[in-house]
Design a binder for these strands. Structure first.
Lengths: 248, 248
DNA sequence: CGTTATGTTGACATTAATCAAGCACGGTGG
DNA sequence: CCACCGTGCTTGATTAATGTCAACATAACG
């Protein structure tokens, strides 16, 4: 995308150049003090006036919405590097709470918007972030559409592994509770638990502690996850079975 | 949001002013010829290089992704006024097909981006669109998380009604097939059909033809849809039952 | 007016939710 | 250091819901 056409200095180097030529979004947050949140604490609430933007520097958070009858839907997990609130309107449309101990920088929304408005590089980055959020939201929709628990869980594990900082490892940290996972995947804690046990019994994963699992048979996990969805393959122009389409 | 702070002339009036002061996104598309698509025809495919942006002026479309095993997931329906492709990256991340006969304008992506880059009003509007898309994607995730078929369907009907051009009516057009609805809600055509029948039997709706339903008891439908989700109420600071949180 | 696509309905199988114990780890205090 | 909670997690038995398979009805189309 076009952001790549602009040669960008990488962050630190630009630290002492005038504000109008700062190279990346993170530098906007860097001067703000670090705020810490204990597990379970809320950063903001769904419906609150959207006054600030945040950059996560450490820990994991959950974004969630509450339904009328008390049910809870987790719309995403956030990690270091994520920026929180770029997609907001007048009010936050979900609550955000710390899952593990969290550190983040806070920036008044107004100031964020001013800075972005006067720097086109930053604008490109904000666009890019929005697109990322979009993609994530859509991926969750795809995840939730999956029929069986195995598929959902397998995809979830792969997703968590890919986000891991020490990538390529087969060890996956799961700082969130089973309830968090359940509310993210649209199933119950019991089913989450049973499915993990099932995977462990079939030797696909090992679950030493409850907050971490090890992938033993990556290929088996991938095929459970339904092969597709990770890599972008060219669409098959011969849609199978029931989807007869009117394309030449 | 900030776009509203800028006083905007409404479209047509700006037609003959220089390009740099065009007031809204639609005017970018207005000079392009109208293209027509018959039901079932694809506008573009998931994975195709993203070369164009589209504005829908008539008809309904579906945006969909195909999974490895042939399953299909509809990630959204598009109506007149919607712009198609603002959230794209290098490649389209879903296919788009006409549901009913469709008319739209096409604009090369490069040109779209150039125009937007040089006009901050347009930029605001693009941001706004992206946020809308985000919200829609997240709403779908919420919809898919709902447990029972009744809830999903009720919400779907309300959603379709709200998008209707002749709003406030209790007649809801459903130009898409049952299969489309099923793939959007993550259920089977049989369940969709049964649920509609059930609603009709309980007098909540009437279903004269298969492509339109009439809401007879709006309140009943709303309560099936689970009260919440439409209006933005202040979050209850007393989360019910199992979600003990560390806020206080 | 026959043929096909789409939608409805029924019988049945399968899956995950629910209800209910019990286990295990982490923390606290004796 | 160990006994005792409490929370979060696991496991089991049962139920309710939706998916599946199959037949049929209806509308759409030539």
């Amino acid at each position: 995308m076009s952001a790549q056409l602009i040669s960008m200095r990488d962050g630190r180097a630009a630290a002492q150049t005038p504000a109008s030529s700062l190279a990346d979004l993170s530098s906007l947050f860097r001067r703000q003090p670090i705020e810490k949140f204990e597990p379970g604490r809320a950063i903001f609430w769904e419906g609150d006036e959207a006054t600030h933007i945040f950059e996560v520097t450490d820990g994991m958070l959950r974004a969630l919405r509450l339904l009328g009858d008390g049910r809870r839907i987790i719309v995403g997990f956030l990690r270091p590097g994520d920026i929180l609130g770029v997609s907001l309107r007048e009010r936050y449309l979900y609550s955000v709470e710390a899952v593990s101990p969290v550190e983040l920088h806070r920036l008044p929304r107004r100031r964020f918007e001013d800075e972005v408005a006067r720097n086109s590089q930053l604008q490109q980055q904000v666009f890019s972030r929005l697109r990322d959020e979009m993609t994530a939201a859509q991926d969750q929709a795809v995840l939730l559409s999956r029929r069986c628990a195995d598929e959902k869980l397998a995809n979830f594990l792969l997703m968590m592994r890919n986000g891991q900082s020490y990538n390529r490892t087969s060890v996956v940290d799961l700082p969130m509770t089973r309830l968090d996972i359940a509310d993210y995947l649209g199933m119950t804690i019991e089913t989450v638990s049973r499915t993990i046990t099932k995977f462990a019994n079939s030797g696909i994963i090992a679950a030493p502690g409850r907050r971490s699992i090890t992938v033993l048979k990556m290929e088996a996990l991938r095929s459970l996850a339904d092969s597709e969805e990770d890599q972008h393959w060219m669409p098959s122009r011969a849609p199978s079975s029931r989807y007869a389409s009117a394309n030449a």
